[in-house]
Amino acid sequence: MLDQLQRLGSASLNTLERLGRGHLFLLNVLTGIPGLFLRFRLVIHQIYSVGVLSLLIIGVAGLFVGMVLGLQGYNTLVDFGAEESLGVVVALTLVRELGPVVAALLFAGRAGSALTAEIGLMKATEQLSAMEMMAVDPLHRVVAPRLLAGFIALPLLAALFSAVGVMGGYFVGVGLLGVDEGAFWSQMEDKVDLFDDVLNGVIKSIVFGFVVTWIAVFEGYDTTPTSEGVGRATTRTVVHSSLAVLGLDFVLTALMFGD
């Protein structure tokens, strides 16, 4: 009984300590962000590896999600004779929820894990130590550009996901199932609001981009410097950032749409 209590206690303390380290780490990284604007080439390099290399998976996933939404939405709406609203259903679902959330989950799997593994391996092979000894702060030189790149890339990826998804819904709804094209677009234009829906979706994806990248770079930096440790940190990145995205999505949705 006491043993279990002790285990619970030490687990909580460990979690708290990690959280604290994560925040201190973030503070130290953030102080390096302003300097990056003078050396934006570093960031561009990272946007390439987290953004450009995620384009394909995001585009394909967005297309299929949109097509499925078109199919499922049509089947439900046609019972009410409201299949003209298909555009609204597809667009709202994507712009408000699925775009930011699914893009963030895919981003965590594709780019987040790669970031953790990369930084973890740099630590395991003493590259981070070597930088410190060369009087180059790895938090500023290695971590900060990656954090900023993730922060920039995810909102763009999420927008791409939503846009491609709407096109997928359009192909299925209008192309295959014969929903009226004009109604599809005009109802969408009518019901989707630039600020309430599109902008809120973008805000969500900005928050997700920040949190996922933060978790990824921290797990990489905090990894046990062995190959096993890097493997475990990579898994943790995917699990923790996915959970963080879903949890934050609920909070943000409640704040934005729940009045």
Binding site: L121, M122, T125, E126, Q127, S129, A130, M131, E132, M133, M134, A135, D137
Partner: peptide
Amino acid sequence: LYELRKRMGMLFQNGALLT
């Protein structure tokens, strides 16, 4: 400390080159 380190060099066991 970073100013001091600019005047120190260190060779790590496996070189620790930036990959």
